[in-house]
Design a protein around this nucleic acid. Structure first.
Length: 625
DNA sequence: GTGGCGTCC
DNA sequence: CAGAGGGACGCCACT
């Protein structure tokens, strides 16, 4: 009470000597005693929206421990509460336990609105037994929804862009490289200037961005109805993690090493001497200089390429390219997956905890890193073995539920093309149906070759591919590929019209939109540089489809999460791979959960075509497909 | 840090 | 006339 009456900043225990705190529009406090803590508790209880940020010992959200908390209750009105700095001569701090207990009520109150990049901070509080609630705003997501392509959406970039403020960087206070300090080793004064600024800037960014968002009803809905509630769902998925069988992967690593050694010997023989098979540069010399093989493709820089498609071409006639392809395939699986994934297993939980990023992909998709669980192999038999190591715990099953041809369905919806709509309403095999149209044959007369071509055309269209690209993909002449494209547009005139209109709209308004109003700005759509302009045009074609698919699965995730929370579905969401959700479910509940999830996913959007979801149940991820 | 390549959707 | 396939992340070699 006494503390609450004091004037800002004159608390005896409060350090305020840092340069940042001295700036005119900044009033930063370091909270070192109970009086000051009580005063700040008062302030945050009485403030409608409080920016909050945590400082920790690690970027690994499962392992990080709280070092300090910063709060901002208005622009420039911020505090840093150090709770676990440890270095020689550190001043006395409040203990982590006492601060968290004092703040628990506020932190866990859904009515007390918080602002910040809170998916990470929620993990940190959870590590200390606090269930953060009241996640009301995230300025990074505000920026992302306003303009996903504008820049990066980290706080430092946003502060420079929207506020013209050059912030103190993390590495400015910790140093970098081998000498980098852990944050708890940073002296409290320096830490306070950095940490309080983080909360302050977050607050100011929200003040700036939220009105812009509110002024655009469609964007505001994407933010409030999709992105904001998704924060919690992603946090839960990350924390749950996925069980991975380390022994299975390790033995795969050993087998891969043996196969690679054998291939390596054969490759040296074919090359007439040893060289580094992992080096594209050395390989290029051996292939095109020592062995003088024909050049079938070049890199963007004009060098003879050693890319897969080129080597595949050469492999028909020569041994070395074939051996290199085999070697590369195995080396990739080993280094990226079977060697790496076991090291990513959290020893405490026995599971892998990825990070899902909500403000990275310009189209609205999520991304995943550390490790990336969205590029686990599936195409080849050796690759699928890696998925067999993603397992359900005893007594449980994995459910994989994936949208069938969602982007083509969205193209049908967006274009309104009658032929495409009809094909999906009749639940046709869409590639077969396309082949029947393009090659003018009966459905059951479509050959495997024709279906393959039609599939390439369908996917090519989604990506804005040219006849040249299609020719290369199918290994046919450019003229022939052009004829296919012409035939396609002849049979599906709505698609042709849609694509022309989309390019035109992008040129006029500078952006394209998804069905749910998410926007993708394309600043280069009117560029005089043809390459840049064409790139923007392909994005304009692709983004509404990819982005709508992202909206749809995010909506489904929110609904699935509600079902999981209210008990109408048993289990846990554990992964999202763009058009697929993976759940871990008790064995007895697997069937009903799979049906419920499929129903939710299929109902996540009302398009003019039905959405179709295929589900599978298995002891591991491969089996669930 | 960049370029080349390869994995996924 | 060259370049002509959307969105990611990560490994390796090389600078």
């Amino acid at each position: 009470m006494r503390a609450a009456l004091r004037k800002l900043g004159d608390e005896a225990g409060a350090a305020s000597a840092s340069p940042a705190a001295a700036a005119a529009d900044r009033n930063y406090t370091t909270v070192l005693d109970e009086h000051e803590l009580a005063r700040w508790l008062d302030r945050i209880m009485q403030t409608d929206l409080v920016a909050i940020d945590t400082e920790t010992t690690s970027l690994n959200y499962m392992e990080a421990e709280l070092v300090g908390i910063s709060l901002a209750v208005g622009p420039g009105e911020a505090a840093y509460i150090p709770v676990a700095h440890r270095y020689a001569g550190v001043p006395e701090q409040l203990s982590r336990e006492s601060v968290l207990e004092a703040m628990r009520g506020w932190l866990e109150s859904a009515e007390q609105a918080k602002l910040g990049h809170l998916k990470y901070d929620a993990h940190i509080f959870r590590n200390h037994g606090i269930a953060l609630a009241g996640i009301a705003h995230d300025s990074m997501l505000e920026s992302y929804v306003l303009n996903s392509t504008a820049s990066r959406h980290d706080m430092d970039s946003l502060a420079a862009k929207y506020l013209g403020i050059e912030t103190v960087k993390y590495e400015d206070v910790t140093g970098k490289g081998a000498k980098q300090l852990r944050f708890d080793e940073v002296d409290i004064e320096t830490a306070a200037a950095y940490a309080a600024e983080d909360a302050d800037i977050t607050y100011r960014l929200h003040q700036k961005l939220w009105p812009s968002l509110e002024a655009e009803a469609e964007l505001a809905r994407v933010y409030t109805e999709i992105e904001r509630p998704l924060i919690d769902v992603l946090g839960k998925m990350e924390r749950t993690g996925v069980r991975v069988d380390a022994e299975m992967l390790s033995s795969q690593s050993r087998e891969l090493a043996e196969s690679m050694a054998a291939i390596k010997e054969s490759a040296y023989a074919a090359a007439g001497g040893p060289f580094n098979l992992d080096s594209p540069k050395q390989l290029q010399e051996v292939l095109y200089e020592r062995l003088a093989l024909p050049v079938r493709g070049k890199t963007p820089k004009g060098q003879p390429s050693t890319a897969e498609s080129v080597l595949q071409d050469l492999a028909e006639a020569y041994d070395l390219p074939r051996l290199v392809l085999e070697y590369r395939g195995l080396a990739k699986l080993k280094s990226t997956y079977t060697d790496k994934l076991p090291r990513e297993i959290n020893p405490r939980t026995g599971r892998i905890h990825t990070s899902y990023h909500q403000a990275v992909a310009a189209t609205g998709r999520l991304s995943s890193s550390d490790p990336n669980l969205q590029n686990i192999p599936i195409r080849t038999p050796e690759g699928r073995r890696i998925r067999q190591a993603f397992v359900a715990p005893p007594g449980h099953k994995l459910i994989a539920a994936d949208y069938s041809q969602i982007e083509l369905r969205i193209m049908a919806h967006l274009s309104g093309d009658e032929g495409l709509l009809r094909a999906f309403h009749e639940r046709a095999d869409i590639h077969r149906a396309t082949a029947a149209e393009v090659f003018n044959v009966e459905l059951d007369a479509v050959t495997a070759e024709q279906r393959r071509s039609a599939k390439a055309i369908n996917f090519g269209l989604i990506y804005g591919m040219s006849a040249f690209g299609l020719a290369r993909q199918l290994g046919i002449q450019r003229g022939e590929a052009q004829a296919y494209v012409d035939l396609y547009f002849d049979r599906y005139p709505g698609v042709k019209r849609y694509m022309e209109e989309t390019r035109q709209r992008a040129r006029e308004q500078g952006y394209v939109s998804t069905v749910f109003g998410r926007r993708l700005y394309l600043p280069e759509i009117n560029s005089r540089n043809a390459q840049r302009r064409q790139y923007a045009e392909r994005s304009a074609i692709n983004a509404p489809m990819q982005g709508t698919a992202a909206d749809v699965i995010k909506r489904a995730m929110l609904e699935v999460d509600r079902g999981l929370a209210d008990g109408s579905i048993a289990g846990k969401l554990i992964m999202q791979v763009h058009d697929e959700l993976v759940l871990e479910v008790a064995e007895a509940a697997a069937g009903s959960a799979a049906s419920a999830v499929a129903a939710i996913m299929e109902g996540a959007a009302e398009l003019s075509v039905p959405l179709q979801v295929d589900t599978g149940i298995g002891a591991n991820w491969d089996e669930a497909h």
